[in-house]
Design a protein around this nucleic acid. Structure first.
Lengths: 226, 226
DNA sequence: CGCAAACTTGAGTATAGTCAACTTCCGTGG
DNA sequence: CCACGGAAGTTGACTATACTCAAGTTTGCG
């Protein structure tokens, strides 16, 4: 399902993204000129592993999950993208082949830029290349973080970590709303949904109260030591 | 311990690397002009997590391991680099901060390029930026592979995978020499050394014979189905 | 209000980590 | 060249962690 043009709200989101925010206004306009927009139901697949992709994507709203498939059909999330995030960039420099499947994890709206056009621009204007490098490096760091966390932390520790990463720096007690279903969080943390549930249980004695999607932290100190 | 100049052998290695092989000869020379070389004992640390780094590195010989440290001091490898590999690029675009520790996993020789100079070049010549993008995307894919394998495969499956990735495409039976200690392989695959040992044992019935560092495969088919 | 999906909890199992004992490999020096 | 010693690797026993399956419970939407 396609919408033809960007709304001004969409433009605002894009302008604040890691990618566009580093570019001169003229460059931004040159790119946005032929940007298309598509809407997706939950569970829609945007592209699949190995498939050729000739676009680069931005999440305007909703949530897009990148995952790999195992031989047995099991899925492993390798990234989750939210409003403002750019994805599919790596493919531009890897033979235009997707390294993972992309699926809307909730109803989502996505902007698309032809990657041919973008790589052409990157070859002409170095600030475009620079912006791409920053996006790609940032995403690389995220993946590395994920890998290290998987290897170093237990389930409750990963959850504690995730919660702390949402803590306004310095406050001892706070609360926030999960930006997606627990299901998705479980995937992002590399856990089965049951394991996430249990992890929350284990964190309760340390002052973590979960009510629906709202997480309340009563004792930041305890979390950091978990 | 520092050596002052590049040998011609070193230059050959660099010229064949993913990075330099994409650049015009003149550009290569411009970069190599102020490249330094350092030698390292096994276990030498090149840089640490969070530390500022102002260079980009190439492995000329030996092996460099990138790892993160857990609170308890445990180490988790996030990458292993061999002859010809470039590392430390991400830091250039992440505030010049290392995201991991780098350690020589055996006696090693490393080439270093000032990252200020490199990023300057990248801002002037788009093919340098392009080459960097390719290196970074490739490394990103490696990390993603690693993450997906960790989440989807058991220890023997990861080992089988690793072995198959060294199999000349199409041959049913073959053998090769591990390019590093089993110790290092274990780390790379996210396993304790004992788990690697056991994984090899489990693969024996499928025709994998391990003698020292030499791996012999008698039945590729069986490995692929593991 | 009722239904379906999301989430939680419980019980059992599988996988890999830890610690310890033992073996093999390999480089060194006699 | 052999003997020795230390490091690397293997094996065993035990444990911890997280997955699976199944049965509940809660949530939220129509």
């Amino acid at each position: 399902m396609k919408t033809l043009r960007l709304t001004s709200g969409d433009r605002a989101i894009l302008l604040h993204s890691r990618f566009f925010s580093r570019l001169a206004r003229a460059t931004v306009e040159a790119i946005l000129a032929d940007t298309t927009v598509s809407t997706h139901e939950e569970h829609d697949v945007l592209f699949r592993e190995q498939e050729r992709i000739d676009e680069v994507f931005f999440v305007l709203s909703g949530l897009v999950r990148l995952y790999r498939l195992g031989k047995d059909g099991r899925e492993a999330d390798v990234a989750v993208f939210q409003r403002g995030d750019m994805f599919g960039v790596n493919a531009m420099f890897l033979n235009h082949r997707a390294t993972a499947n992309a699926q809307a994890a909730e109803p989502s709206i996505v902007a698309r830029v032809e990657s041919r056009r973008l790589s052409q621009l990157a070859a002409e204007e170095t600030d475009v290349a620079q912006a791409l490098l920053e996006v790609v490096c940032h995403h690389g760091k995220m993946t590395e973080d994920c890998l290290a966390d998987d290897r170093l932390l237990t389930a409750p520790q990963r959850v504690a970590n995730y919660i702390l990463s949402h803590c306004p720096n310095g406050s001892e007690t706070f609360s926030f709303r999960l930006p997606f279903q627990k299901n998705v969080l479980a995937g992002k943390l590399g856990l089965a949904p049951e394991a996430l549930s249990r992890a929350f249980s284990m964190l309760r004695p340390s002052g973590v109260v979960v009510k629906g999607r709202v997480i309340e932290i009563r004792n930041r100190q305890a979390l950091e030591e978990f």
